[in-house]
Design a protein around this nucleic acid. Sequence first.
DNA 1: CCTTTATTATTCTACGTTGTATATTCTACC
DNA 2: GGTAGAATATACAACGTAGAATAATAAAGG
Lengths: 179, 179
Amino acid sequence: MATRLVILGLLREQSLHGYEIKQIIEEHMGDWTNIAFGSIYYALGKLEEEGFVERVATEQEGNRPSRNIYQITEHGQIEFLRRLRELWRVPQRQYFDFDLALFFIEALPREEMLSYLRGRVAGLEATLAHLDAHQADQDALPEVPPIANAIFEHSRCHIEAELAWTQDLLSKVEQGLYP
Amino acid sequence: MATRLVILGLLREQSLHGYEIKQIIEEHMGDWTNIAFGSIYYALGKLEEEGFVERVATEQEGNRPSRNIYQITEHGQIEFLRRLRELWRVPQRQYFDFDLALFFIEALPREEMLSYLRGRVAGLEATLAHLDAHQADQDALPEVPPIANAIFEHSRCHIEAELAWTQDLLSKVEQGLYP
DNA sequence: CCTTTATTATTCTACGTTGTATATTCTACC
DNA sequence: GGTAGAATATACAACGTAGAATAATAAAGG
């Protein structure tokens, strides 16, 4: 969805081919994005059609698959800023598939539900623990940009919110507030 | 994504045609789902292929477009429970496009960023106020199922978390903690 | 060494989403 | 009584996503 923006943003720094873009995304944004590599090639094709990106070379090392190197155009620079500003301006609404599970709550026996809820609480607690451990590792390294912390905190605060809400729901179900 | 589950869940109660399903989704789940009506027809076709749903009639009122009425099959009942249990069991990870805006933070001047951040805080506060007002209206009606409250609280707690995080980010940027 | 596995780099297809197009009928209002 | 707009009902094409298929080379392990 934001694949185009990411590609334009990365190409601002230097020209790249698809596979390199994929690697940068995995290494630097892998923890908090889910851009499938297939989408990268599609987006590159589209950006080229739209004139935001140009193919500047087709290299090949030995008999390896040849690679197409792309460069951002001036229109691309403008388009990047346009998309970036839109991201800052327009808040995105979040939807939760799990709400559907609640909507159809009477379809499963109470006991089964309770066990799933307890599993969810445990899972979320484990995620938080895992996240914090991972973060402690990161803190040891000096070269991590400060903004990475904000992104980390972003995930963390939503997981905490989810945990608190799930615990509340669990206790209400235990009290028999839902049929 | 969860379109198939919704359709199966609704057809458990009674046979329906696509447009009716669309209306029920809009009326009862419109606030917390985003299923495009086009997806309903696609999902119905797929569910029929898979044998989870059967076309039982093609009605027509006057010269109105004719409508295809679908019924859930026994396999469909099982499939519904399978998908529902998966929803209870498997927690979904959330991704935030806005993190990209942070990732490319040096692309925009500090002052512009600050004004977007303030706008976001204001927007989230307004959303919360609007949500609570809407909820007060709902509370006045007696026929709303109790689970609707849990779903409402779910959205609310995440918006609150987002607000708190954004305020924190804003204050850190104001303090000059990010370049 | 030789075999298994990982890496490089892209193409291609199946799948699902979104909204536009279409064509009729009912409603509302001047 | 005419006409603008909302409601009924689906089909369909354009778009984007996700991952399997491909095909060559480098690395690793016994």
